[in-house]
Amino acid sequence: MIPLLTDGVPRRGLKLLAAFSVALLAAPLVASDYLLTVLILVLYFAYVGQAWNIMMGFAGQLSLGHALYVGLGAYAAAALYVHFGVGPWLGLWVAMASAAAAGATIGFLAFRFGVGGVYFAILTIAFAEFARIGFDHWSWLGGSAGLFLPVANYGGNDILTLRGSPTMFYYVMLAMTASAFVLCHVLLRSRIGYYWLAIRESADAAQALGIDIFRCKMVAVVVSAAMTSLGGVLFAFYYNNLFPEQVFHISRSIELILGPIIGGIGTLVGPIVGAFLLTTLAETLSEIMRAVGIDLPGIKQVFYGFCLLGVVMFLPDGVWPPLGRWLGLGREEGDRGSGEGKR
C-alpha cells in the first residue's frame, strides 16, 4: 500500500506534504474561531474541487452544475436525519446513491452520442436548475422556506450524528480532504485513471486503443458525483440549514470549480492550492471591505470573476504547475504538460 502511494513522488514532495499535513493537524490548537471557520471552508472547497477535478481534470468533461450533487447529498442526509432520525453515517450512502444516479442520468443523455463539450456542460447546469426549482416546491423537504436541522449543541462532540464544535467539523473535513487526495492519487495510477487521461487528450485515439469511452466517462461522472455529495452531507450538518435557492444555485457550482481551475486543472495538488488561495484572498477582501465599512453584496463574486479571468488568460495551466516547478517538484503525472494539448 505504502509504495503504491509514494511511488513516483519526489522525496522533496513527500517531505513538503508531511510538513503541510502536520501544520493542518495542529491548526485548531492555535487558530482562532474565525480562522478555523475559514479553514473549514478552505478544506470544503479543496474536497469538492478534488471531486470535480476527476471529471474535468482527469476525464476532460466540463461540469458546470456540481452544486446539484452537493445539494442532493445535503438534502438526502438532512431529510433522513430530520424526518426519520437516521444519522449521517447511514444517510451518506443514500446521498451518494442519489447523486450517482443523477450523474449517471446526465452522463447517459450527453455521452450516448459522443457529444460531450457544450452539451454536457449545459445539461449539468440545466439539471442543477431543475433541482433548484423542484426542491423549491417540495414541501416535504421544506420547499423554498428551507430545511433546518436541530441546531448543534456545542457542549459535546457527537461524531455519530455530526453534532458538535467547529473543531470536530474541521477534523472530519480534513479527513475527507486527505482521503479524496489519496483516492485521486490512486485513481490516477490505476487503469481507469490512465483511460481518463487518454480520453481527455484525444477521445479518438483512446477509442482506437480499445478504451470504451462511454463507460469510462460514465464512471468518471458517477465517482465524481458520489464524492461531491459527501461534501454536501457535511455542508448540511455544518450549516444546519438548507435553501434550494442557495444550495443548488449556479453561483455555487461556479464557486466550486474555481479552486481547481486556479490551482491547476488535472493536478492532484491544484484543487488544494486553489482553495487555499481563493478562500483566503476572498476572506481578506471581505475583511477589508468590512473594515472600510463598504457593503457591496456582489463584490466577492466580481473578485472571483477577475481571478478566473486572470488565470484563464495568463496561467491556463493554473498556479500549481509553475509553483510546483519552483519548489523543485517537477512534473506530476496527469499534469497537462505544456498545455498546448487539445485542438
Partner: peptide, 16 residues
C-alpha cells in the same frame, strides 16, 4: 484554445 478554456473565459465575464 480548447473549448473548456473559452467557456471558462466567458463564465468569468458573465460572473463579473
Amino acid at each position: 484554445r480548447p473549448e473548456h478554456s473559452q467557456f471558462m473565459l466567458l463564465v468569468a465575464v458573465a460572473l463579473i
